[in-house]
Design a protein around this nucleic acid. Structure first.
Length: 572
RNA sequence: GCGCCCGUAGAUCAACUGGAUAGAUCGCAUGGCUACGAACCAUGAGGUUGGGGGUUCGAAUCCUCCCGGGCGUACCA
């Protein structure tokens, strides 16, 4: 909060001296070390250099133009030209008083809300969701919630893979090898079995591959029987997807699958051909990107030599639909990093097809899911850990722990705690790392109940709640100010103020791990405060102020965890 | 071959427009429950950021060359 004010004052001061300066990079950041101060800017050094000024002289001039006595001690110049700001307790106190009254929670919503479409999860029909799908789902949903918290309009769209060549094989399997009992028991597992079976047969027998192609063509031509089977496979799959989403508490505004765009595909290809963007090559319609370094040797195929469209075409139609329907300023795709080339092609192609579309096209990619052996999980062969089993085991392990730590809690409550902690642990493990890093799947890492994990944060929250349970019905007095004379109180208070900055970093770079780090540090500050500053035993104004600090910290923890898609519990 | 990504403590990871002494957790060692929950807190050991060169007042971060790994690379998504 205060840092926004400081930043604006700083930027105005810079403009007074250098009216043409680009102030977008004149930013204020927390100091890396408390001994330097609370906030710093290093932007003046580079700015001075670019304008052939002495950085320290320039810094002195800027300071003369900034009026911050309401908020800070005199600004200090350090090293080659850093400015260090040290907050006054009064300013800190005033911000906390407002927060305690519920006027704000240390962030501000966007001055100009944007519309953002976020595409995540996107599982394929007839394949069970596995651990590989969870990262897109969890990341995408956390990003959606963060954008929304900051006041943006978000449209979430689950672009389900409900069309494509795999249905030829599936149809052959369905007609020749379907086990009805198995289908009833576990529809996705049975469909997966059919796919693998036919896929193997195709490798051995050309005629089966031919019949799969025939079934696919019949489906595409609208054959009644094939359409009915296809529709049934979609319904069965979506039913199971919805169960997973319900357990994960993940939602979507739209679920427009690939098939939604079928009747637009031919038109897209025709337009690309008519505009001279696509050209014929080896029987297919392709687009070359000769003046693009990374794409030079990689044409995008928009129509296969058999006349069928493929996923590039579908994605173009999808993007067009999103542009027309929601007029977004940004479209975010949350997928794994292996699709980078595809999205580079897609974005470059869309730029040529719809010049001046003005949309920020953003591929938010994440690292591979690795097994214990360091090899990536395979989707169509090898060991697959099913999402449902994964969630079950997380809950079971958490249940064991809570039963050991707190055997006196009612069984129902222990189950509820285990659900929140177990699922939270999985989600948090996915969110807390840099998304570009590969994800090493490991039960112990995912479900560890110590360290930078969901259980640690949830535990911090239950400690807050525990204080208020003890307090009972006693009504909370509103502090008129905060003394913050204990080190731990001061550190906690200063950390609370940084929340808004962190939220903006999350949406700027689509990296929820910044929020995880922040909450982890917040829990740490609260832990130190909790150990060293008695709350209920304190008297008078000190007690009032510490209770208010607990309340605000609890609200912030809860808001932060909810934004990440985690639930909270009262005790654990 | 070409393109993209990665390489940080024993392990798992972090590091905010390039920024000040590269931070956490696990594990290891030590101390703390007659103060609100010890699933906690505090302290300590542990680093040539794969290697060389360059740009810069300043490099884990940018450029370049090596070494090692992953992924992609014309009709799967």
């Amino acid at each position: 909060m205060i840092h926004f004010v400081l930043q604006e004052k700083l930027q105005r001061a810079v403009l007074e001296i250098l009216p043409d300066a680009d102030i977008s990079s004149v930013l204020i950041r927390p100091c890396p070390e408390p001994k330097f101060g609370d906030y710093q800017t290093n932007a003046l050094i580079g700015l001075a250099k670019r304008n052939k000024l002495n950085p320290r002289d320039f810094a002195t001039q800027v300071i003369d133009k900034i009026e911050v006595t309401d908020f800070c001690q005199p600004i200090e110049i350090a090293g080659p030209g850093f400015l260090n700001f040290r907050l006054k307790i009064d300013a800190l106190s005033a911000t906390l008083v407002d927060a305690a009254k519920g006027k704000h929670l240390f962030y501000r919503t966007a001055l100009k809300p944007r519309t953002i479409v976020i595409d995540y999860s996107s599982p394929n029909i007839a394949k069970p969701m596995h651990v590989g799908h969870i990262r897109s789902t969890i990341l995408g949903y956390a990003l959606a919630k963060t954008f929304r918290l900051l006041g943006h309009k978000v449209v979430t769209d689950n672009h389900i893979g409900d069309w494509g060549t795999q249905f030829g094989k599936l149809l052959v399997g369905w007609k020749q090898h379907l086990d009805h009992k198995a289908l009833e028991r576990d529809a996705l597992a049975e469909m997966e079995r059919l796919y693998k079976l036919v896929n193997n047969d195709c490798d051995k027998d050309e005629s089966i591959l031919a019949s799969a192609r025939k079934e696919l063509v019949k489906l595409q031509d609208g054959n009644t029987e094939n359409r009915a089977i296809w529709r049934k496979m979609i319904n069965l799959s979506r039913h199971q997807f919805d169960e997973i989403y319900s357990r994960l508490r993940v939602e979507f505004d739209e679920t427009l699958g690939e098939s939604f765009y079928n009747n637009r595909l031919k038109g897209v290809v025709d337009e690309l051909m008519a505009q001279g963007i696509a050209e014929e090559s080896e029987g297919a319609q392709v687009v070359f990107f000769n003046n693009h370094k990374a794409l030079k040797k990689q044409p995008a195929i928009v129509q296969k030599s058999d006349g069928a469209a493929n996923y590039t075409t579908t994605d173009l139609a999808t993007l067009e639909h999103r542009q027309k329907t929601w007029r977004p300023s940004e479209v975010i795709y949350v997928t794994d990093g292996r699709q980078q080339l595809h999205f580079q092609q897609l974005f470059a192609l869309y730029d040529r097809w719809k010049p001046n579309h003005g949309i920020k096209l953003n591929h938010v990619w994440f690292g591979a899911i690795l097994g214990e052996d360091g090899r990536p999980f395979k989707t169509r062969s090898g060991e697959i850990i099913r999402l449902a089993d994964l969630l079950d085991e997380a809950e079971q392990r958490a249940y064991k722990t809570v039963s050991k730590k707190n055997p006196d809690l009612p069984k129902d409550e222990r189950h509820e705690i285990a659900r929140v902690v177990g699922l939270g642990a999985i989600k948090y493990a996915d969110l807390s790392g840099n998304r570009h890093s590969d994800y090493v799947f490991n039960w112990d890492t995912m479900l560890a109940l110590v360290g930078n994990t969901a259980p640690y944060l949830l535990y911090a929250f239950t400690r807050v709640r525990s204080i208020f349970r003890k307090l009972g019905d006693e009504s909370l007095a509103q502090p008129e100010s905060f003394a913050l004379d204990q080190l731990e109180e001061l550190a906690l208070a200063k950390h609370l103020l940084r929340f808004g900055l962190v939220l903006e970093q999350v949406v700027d770079e689509c990296r929820p791990n910044y929020l995880c780090n922040y909450l982890y540090e917040l829990a740490g500050h609260f832990g130190a405060f909790y150990e060293n500053c008695p709350v209920l035993q304190a008297k008078g104004e000190t007690r009032t102020q510490r209770l208010a600090l607990c309340k605000i910290t609890g609200q912030l923890l809860q808001t932060g965890l909810e934004t990440l898609g985690l639930e909270t519990i009262e005790r654990m």
